[in-house]
Each structure stands twice: as C-alpha cells, then as structure tokens.
Computed example of a mutant assay.
Amino acid sequence: MMFKKSLLNFKKQLNEAVNFGRNVSFSNVSKVLVCGMGGSALPGDFVKSLFYPLNFEISVCRDYEIPGFVGEDYIVFCISYSGNTKETIRMYESLVKITDKIVVITSGGKIGELARKYNSELILVPAGLQPRIAIGYLTFPVINVMVNSGIVKYNLSTEVNKANLVLNYDFEKQGKKIAGMLKDTVPLIYVSGADNIIGLKWKISFNENTKIPAFYNLFPEWNHNEINSFENNPCKFTAVMINDKYDNEILKKRFIITKDLLKDRGLEVLSIDLQGRNKLSRLLFGISLGDWVSYELALIYRQDAESVPVVEELKKRLEE
C-alpha cells in the first residue's frame, strides 16, 4: 500500500518540488553533467526530453568514473536519492578535485555529509520514496538551477500549473486495463527520440516494480535494425507504441506503418496517446501512466512493487 500511496501523491510531489533549487545559481556556465544511478539518474534524461531538440550540452554519467571533458563551463549535478549510492559518491569525490560548480541532490546519507564537508550546493529532498518514484523531487531542482544560471529560459511554476489538469486523469483505471493486456508477455516500448524519458521510465518500472524483463527503443532508429528481428520471433512480446501528437509528420507515418508491419508478423500492438498541451504535461502523463501499469501488473503477478530484492542482494554481496 505504501507504493500505491506514492503513486497517488505524485501530483502533490510535483507541486511541492517546484520550489526546490530556486536559490541556487552559477555564473559563466553553459553545459550540464548529471551523475547518478538508477532512478537518481533520470533527471538528466527528463531534461533532455523536456528541452528537445537541445540548444545546450547535457550529458548523463552512470558509472564509477567521471568523463574527462568536465570544465569550468559545466554545472555538475550529483544525485543520489538515498545518499549512499557507491558509484555517485565516487564520482562526487573525483569531481570536487576539479570543480566547485557542483549541486548535490539527496535526501541525506553519506553524499549529503560530503557536500557539507566540501561546501557544495546541497538540495535536500524528502525521504521515504523509491528513487524511481521521486522524479519530481530530483528533477525540478535541476531545472530551477539551470534557469537561474541562464542555461535555459523556462517558467517551471507556470508549466506545472498547466500539467496539473492532465494529472487528474484516472491513471489507476487505465493502468489496470493496460496491465491486463500485457499479462504473460514481454513489453517492448517504442517512443520517439523526443520522448526518450518515457520509454526508459516504462522499462525501469517494469523491471523494478513488476520484476519482469522489458525493453525500449526509439523511433526512427529502431526501424533500421530491431524491426527486422520479428521475422524470426520465438518469444511472446507486446509492442507498446507511445504516440505524441506533436511528433513531426514523418515520425507519425513511421508509427502507423510500423504498427501494421508488426501486426502482420503476429505481434500484439498496443497504442497509447500522450495527453497534454505542453511538453511537461505529456512527459508527466506518460511517466505516471507507466508507473500505474507496472504497479497493476505487479499485483497480477503477486509481486511487491516497492521492494528490489535482487538489487539489495547484489549490494550485500559487493560489501562482502
């Protein structure tokens, strides 16, 4: 029930998070690096989708080692919801040796202590969620700092107010319906490059919440390789095609033709239309719907959507 409560409180989280990071800014910066793992790395992907096509440089580092290109024109965000992510702590300890333009976003933990020690900008967010559900708390501070630092022009409060309407959608009802259609299949999620964060988030939600394999790919790239794999298809897949009415006409045509080609080869194809008039609305709609679908499918499979037992076992073994 705790996980369901987190889903029900998503709109509340977003409206609370809109003020995080408003007092943080840097001068003489034009590029962004986001360092994190799992759900804590998603803010970088969210920002890429929100401001697509990009007119600034942003990279996401999911590793132990930092890239060699970081300079004084970068803002670096080190994000660890728990504050104890080993990879992110190691990246932070390397970064403080080369730049002081670092923002740590966390609910506490060791990286919070290190941020205080090295006088990095520290944005504390509420604890008690799984990182993959805390996307508002972790992402909105990144946007606010970027705006304050002159990298982008964006009125987050105004855009969130517009998004509130679409977030009143009955995600639970629709999530239950879609989950029933995905039962006993492997979901393959397909989105346009502009909506990359939605495809990635659906995949992660199925992996962690439902405990099943799931995969995603992007239009138009997957039309040049993966689509050919269904000529010899030994597995039971369902293609989930997430449509954005604001995609360009060429992409829309690709979606239609691809759907027919997959059906001709015996695949089940599920089409989902994103709702919302502004980009933030459509991204949040897609993410929220995916969370509810994965949760309802977890109930069907009698899985605890909150826990990640294999991840925890891996961490334990690494400590031995």
Results as ranks from 00 to 15, higher is better:
residue 236 K to G: 08
residue 199 G to E: 00
residue 243 N to E: 15
residue 60 V to I: 15
residue 201 K to P: 00
residue 247 D to F: 02
residue 98 I to L: 07
residue 216 Y to A: 03
residue 19 N to M: 10
residue 36 G to T: 03
residue 25 S to I: 05
residue 304 D to Q: 11
residue 38 G to W: 01
residue 316 K to H: 07
residue 258 T to E: 04
residue 68 G to H: 02
residue 291 D to P: 00
residue 293 V to N: 01
residue 263 K to I: 13
residue 306 E to G: 13
residue 254 R to Q: 11
residue 257 I to P: 09
residue 102 I to V: 09
residue 216 Y to V: 03
residue 89 I to E: 08
residue 5 K to D: 14
residue 223 N to K: 00
residue 193 G to I: 09
residue 307 S to K: 11
residue 2 M to Q: 14
residue 198 I to M: 02
residue 284 L to T: 01
residue 6 S to Q: 13
residue 76 V to P: 05
residue 282 R to P: 03
residue 44 G to N: 01
residue 264 D to S: 13
residue 273 D to T: 07
residue 56 F to N: 11
residue 163 A to Q: 04
residue 92 Y to V: 07
residue 23 N to V: 11
residue 180 G to P: 04
residue 82 S to I: 06
residue 187 P to M: 01
residue 213 P to K: 09
residue 255 F to G: 03
residue 220 P to I: 10
residue 297 L to A: 08
residue 162 K to S: 10
residue 89 I to F: 10
residue 267 L to P: 09
residue 253 K to C: 12
residue 44 G to R: 00
residue 25 S to R: 12
residue 84 N to I: 04
residue 221 E to M: 09
residue 186 V to F: 08
residue 65 E to A: 13
residue 86 K to M: 11
residue 313 E to G: 04
residue 215 F to K: 00
residue 161 N to W: 06
residue 158 T to L: 15
residue 95 L to C: 06
residue 260 D to F: 12
residue 22 R to M: 12
residue 170 D to F: 00
residue 242 I to F: 01
residue 82 S to G: 15
residue 185 T to E: 12
residue 48 K to G: 02
residue 71 G to V: 07
residue 188 L to M: 05
residue 187 P to I: 02
residue 304 D to G: 04
residue 231 E to W: 12
residue 85 T to D: 08
residue 6 S to C: 14
residue 260 D to H: 12
residue 48 K to M: 13
residue 188 L to Y: 06
residue 38 G to C: 08
residue 11 K to R: 14
residue 249 E to K: 14
residue 68 G to L: 08
residue 52 Y to N: 14
residue 235 C to Q: 15
residue 10 F to E: 00
residue 301 Y to P: 09
residue 183 K to E: 13
residue 294 S to P: 06
residue 24 V to L: 10
residue 94 S to T: 15
residue 267 L to F: 04
residue 106 T to P: 11
residue 203 K to R: 14
residue 234 P to V: 07
residue 293 V to Y: 03
residue 65 E to H: 12
residue 83 G to F: 12
residue 50 L to S: 09
residue 88 T to A: 11
residue 172 E to K: 13
residue 77 F to K: 03
residue 67 P to F: 08
residue 200 L to K: 15
residue 270 L to N: 02
residue 309 P to H: 08
residue 81 Y to T: 03
residue 154 Y to H: 14
residue 145 V to P: 03
residue 274 L to A: 02
residue 109 G to S: 07
residue 22 R to S: 15
residue 158 T to D: 14
residue 166 V to M: 11
residue 163 A to P: 01
residue 247 D to P: 04
residue 187 P to E: 01
residue 97 K to F: 06
residue 249 E to H: 07
residue 95 L to A: 07
residue 120 S to N: 12
residue 282 R to G: 05
residue 228 N to F: 13
residue 176 K to W: 06
residue 320 E to R: 12
residue 12 K to R: 13
residue 288 S to H: 12
residue 77 F to T: 06
residue 99 T to P: 04
residue 310 V to S: 14
residue 273 D to E: 15
residue 241 M to H: 03
residue 56 F to K: 07
residue 149 S to I: 09
residue 180 G to R: 06
residue 58 I to T: 03
residue 317 R to W: 12
residue 132 R to M: 05
residue 34 V to P: 01
residue 113 E to A: 13
residue 230 F to Y: 13
residue 198 I to R: 01
residue 163 A to E: 05
residue 316 K to F: 09
residue 172 E to Q: 11
